[in-house]
């Protein structure tokens, strides 16, 4: 029970912890403040509670495929928010801190969605042992250890990213957001295959003997870049396609904000 709780909570918390670390590292040179974290985490927990509470109803939707549809929708939405974040982080870097409200809102929104997705699973797991006095204490202790390890990974990751200077830190953060976004799309496609909305195919490769998915490196890579040991050709195509879209957004945003900064500089010498 103890080990199961550690693994489940760690797996679910890792993604949110790494996302927080990436966003904090990318914005640490600007006076953004941390109040968005508080609001985002609390609204994420409320959202997770509602999602977990309604999961039975959601799962029964569309001939019992509501679970896949709702989770895939959440993941695609997170990807959409990441695209906006890529543009806004480049704006922050090139134009400075003139109006940070949209950036703060979308950072909070991304984290909130991530907490809803992962947190609801933790809450559903909790609901299974909350009424059993035999397993309650080991379940809680395991969950606290799992959460501690997850947030420690996040803190370590933040300090690792903080070692870079301003532009490199932004580049690494943007690169990670691109890969996290691609991972979201890949996971969403897998859920749609599970629901038979997309065709299932034989794996394109199998790296499970090198990096098994349940291992700690496998789970870290899963949270960071959406690692799958046996992805199908369609999943790989969707992953690559989403990276291409994110990079296009980054290039367009960079060109646009660079031009507007240059224009401002020439009109106000």
């Amino acid at each position: 029970m103890l080990l199961t709780s550690v693994i489940i909570v760690l797996r679910e918390i890792l993604e949110a912890a790494l996302l927080i670390a990436t966003l904090l590292a990318a914005t640490r040179f600007y006076s953004i403040g941390h109040s968005w974290l508080r609001i985002s985490i609390s609204s994420g927990i409320v959202g997770a509670l509602i999602f977990a509470w309604q999961l039975r109803t959601i799962s029964n939707l569309y001939e019992g495929l509501g679970y896949e549809i709702s989770n895939a929708a959440l993941q695609v939405l997170i990807y959409g928010v990441i695209l906006v974040l890529i543009a806004l982080l480049l704006k922050l870097y090139l134009c400075g801190t003139t109006n940070n409200k949209p950036l703060v809102f979308f950072m909070g929104f991304a984290l909130c969605l991530s907490i809803i997705r992962e947190g609801s699973e933790i809450l559903i797991y909790f609901s299974g042992f909350m009424h059993n006095t035999e397993t309650l204490s080991s379940g809680i202790i395991g969950s606290v250890i799992g959460a501690g390890v997850g947030f420690s990974f996040g803190a370590l990751f933040y300090f690792l990213l903080s070692a870079f200077h301003k532009s490199l830190s932004l580049m690494v953060a943007l690169g990670l957001l691109v890969l996290v976004g691609a991972g979201m799309c890949s996971q969403a496609s897998m859920l749609l295959m599970q629901a038979d909305f997309l065709p299932s195919q034989r794996p394109l490769w199998n790296t499970s003997s090198w990096i098994p998915e349940p291992s700690i490196p496998g789970q870290l890579l899963y949270a960071l870049i959406g690692y799958e040991a046996t992805p199908s050709p369609l999943q790989v195509s969707i992953y690559a396609g989403s990276i291409f879209i994110s990079l296009t957004v980054a290039v367009i945003s960079y060109t646009f904000y660079r031009r507007s900064t240059n224009k401002k500089a020439s009109t106000h010498p």
Partner: peptide, 9 residues
């Protein structure tokens, strides 16, 4: 992991 499937019931 082998079937690439996960679903809460």
């Amino acid at each position: 992991w082998e079937l690439n499937r996960e679903k809460v019931i």
